[in-house]
Nucleic acid binder design. Structure first.
Lengths: 207, 207
DNA sequence: GCATTTCTGAACTCAACAGTTTAGTTTAAA
DNA sequence: TTTAAACTAAACTGTTGAGTTCAGAAATGC
């Protein structure tokens, strides 16, 4: 942001520009967003906007970088490795699902999918700071569980990705393709419970 | 196509137009495609194109409808209900995964995601003729397995969706976000085996 | 107060693109 | 071979949107 690269920030309305761009790009995508829209939303003149960013592309990439970072931060917190899978997985699952179904999660996903052709870097960054990061954190936790003998997993990374996948079952596509109005809480819980059950069924140690 | 609605088809180049539009729309999306491009790709003049379709939107929806139907056809064949899950699931999983990773599957998914805001109908249709259809067919099969006592499932539809989800683990996003060059066969097989194993582990009857 | 930097807004250029028109050419069928 | 329908090429209109320019207004620092 402005604080990290003060050299880039020359004026007082930098943050307004970024904030406006964020709103409009997340709402309309790259092509869909017009620079005039962004300037209006930011409460700033076009000339000001162009004094900060050389073109629309660069502005977009700046926003995309910020948002993937924001996404990464949402998952960066380490999991408590001492908790049992029975206790921890439902919470993690719920967090993943809530994020995916949130307006922000949907918007970022949509942008990443539709623009990763035009901006390959963006696709990779989204992947690294989203799905890959979650899988990595989860893998670390699962490894400690297997070390403690609470789980039995041969391919830990695959297991982590399977769990992530199971949490999205049904609901991600339903929301993405507007196949439903809204998703109530009990339905989310059913999916999470199913994911945890299936996971422990497969990788839990026999009692 | 032309044969199903001969009333719409007035001239001999109808199919060329559709074919060209298909190529360009799948490659560039709705905004990214220009009508001049389509006409050039189709080997047809713009006037001819506009003699068939009133505007770009309608042309796009025609293509989208065709492609979702094509997608549906790929999964329409009934599964052999007499096969055991151990025998059938790996094949089904492989089919799902291959489709998702194919150029066509990727292109249609990408279009559906990025245009379902502009064309809500498209999103719904994609969903119905893709994920929902697969889940439905799979549910029917799983029901017959539980009836035979080969599987033990309480929520059959959820189970079907879980299996579908497991088959995409890791590889769909990897491909979608260009986080890899290409995906070799052994990796696909590993994911499918993992999916089948997990599924049977959870829903298979104890032996 | 005065000077400097930042910002404004409105008008502008330029290119791309959707859709139309027209005058003339090709095709195919009778 | 004639005729009508289908098609073409190319020029044209109107719009939208990216990026620029500039004369002047507002904020900031001294």
């Amino acid at each position: 942001m402005s604080d990290t690269h003060p050299a880039i920030k020359k004026g007082r309305k930098f943050d307004q520009v970024v904030e406006g761009a964020r709103t409009v790009f997340l709402r309309d995508g790259f092509e869909g967003a017009s620079v005039d829209d962004i300037a209006r939303e930011a409460g700033v003149s076009k000339a000001t906007l162009y004094s900060y960013f050389p073109d629309k592309r660069v502005l977009f990439l700046e926003i995309a970088a910020q948002e993937t970072k924001r996404q990464a931060d949402a998952f960066e917190e380490r999991m408590d490795e001492n908790l049992s899978p029975e206790a921890l997985l439902p919470n993690v699952g719920r967090k993943i699902l809530d994020f995916i179904l949130s307006d922000f999660g949907q918007a970022v996903f949509r942008i990443a999918v539709s623009e990763s052709d035009r901006f390959p870097e963006l696709g990779r960054k989204y992947y690294e700071s989203g799905p890959a990061l979650v899988a990595k954190r989860l893998s670390q936790y699962l490894a400690s569980c297997t070390a403690r003998g609470e789980l039995e997993i041969d391919d830990i990374e695959l297991a982590a990705e399977q769990f992530g996948e199971l949490c999205k079952a049904r609901l991600q596509s339903r929301r993405l393709f507007q196949a439903c109005c809204d998703i109530d809480d009990s339905e989310k819980q059913k999916v999470i419970d199913g994911a945890v059950h299936m996971f422990l069924c497969c990788y839990g140690v026999r009692k």
